[in-house]
Design a protein around this nucleic acid. Structure first.
Lengths: 156, 156
DNA sequence: TCAATCTATTTCAAGCATAAAATTTCTTGC
DNA sequence: GCAAGAAATTTTATGCTTGAAATAGATTGA
């Protein structure tokens, strides 16, 4: 008889409490990932996210495509790509027919750096979400779908 | 027969994909909350979090207590409390026996501003998590507990 | 043509976040 | 009393993030 909540508590309070737990789990995992990226690789999550997008499109992405994929502002991407470029991990190449736009690509150094980061990232999550077996992953996924659906979000 | 994943896919990849969905749901909800706080109340999430902590302790909190509760850095809290103070929502009062520390309290204006924000915040979440009924809330909560437990996190 | 408009990107100002260094004030041990 | 260390906070440097303004280049329609 799983009844872990007082029936007297309004549903809105229960949803609020769930959100706070949700946030707590999320931010502790994310904080740990940021810490490891920093300590073990001298990198950051925003950089990882941009590299991840670039890795999926070897032909390059325009600045606006990156910001669209990651759902962040244009100005934000400018800064991150600047720093990636300074570090030799990305480069901007001209688009033939359009002098406004540029394609951003990972350099070979960027590709191998990302491969290393991605492998570590997957292993970290495997470790941190290790408490979840196949059935729980399915159940969790369905709940998340329910939320996203209700939010009226489209996929990428 | 819910079998939404290929059995061939390694568990680590499933966990990674779950994390990405988790992040997506979380960040779209959070982005919407930030947007509404900004557009409807001219406020921000960090301010709301600090005010929320202060509201729970009417006798005041030391700077280090705030940063401990919210798990953010000391320097971060300095800036947020500075701005809250400039806006007349919080104030620093001296601690009798210790000239190093100060207690931060909500002003009456801060209290009523927070009450309004908190009510809106709860209603927003109720709306955004409206797809989840009591049973789903319980199931979700247990999954989150499983994650947090595996992470070895203590409660606040 | 060429002016109006649209598109792609960068720049700017402000706030948030961190870790590390600096400052000020207590506390402790002699 | 006082020097050494600990504690509370602020400051600093750097990076991330946004929305809004600015810049530069393309497109379109009279």
């Amino acid at each position: 008889m799983p009844k872990t909540h007082p029936t007297s508590e309004p549903l809105s309070k229960q949803r609020l409490r769930l959100w706070l737990r949700f946030l707590k789990a999320q931010s502790s995992i994310e904080a740990e990932i940021r810490r490891r990226l920093r300590d073990q690789y001298g990198s950051t999550l925003p950089r990882f996210d941009v590299m991840s997008a670039l890795a999926r499109f070897p032909d390059g992405l325009k600045m606006s495509e990156i910001s669209g994929l990651l759902k962040v502002s244009n100005g934000n991407v400018t800064g991150i790509v600047d720093r990636l470029t300074q570090d030799g991990l990305a480069l901007r190449v001209a688009v033939p027919g359009d002098r406004r736009a540029q394609l951003v690509r990972l350099t070979p150094a960027g590709q191998s750096a990302f491969a290393e980061l991605a492998q570590a990232h997957e292993a970290w999550l495997d470790e941190m979400l290790g408490g979840l077996g196949p059935d729980e992953l399915d159940g969790f996924g369905e709940l998340l779908d329910g939320v996203s659906e209700h939010l009226g979000e489209g996929g990428d």
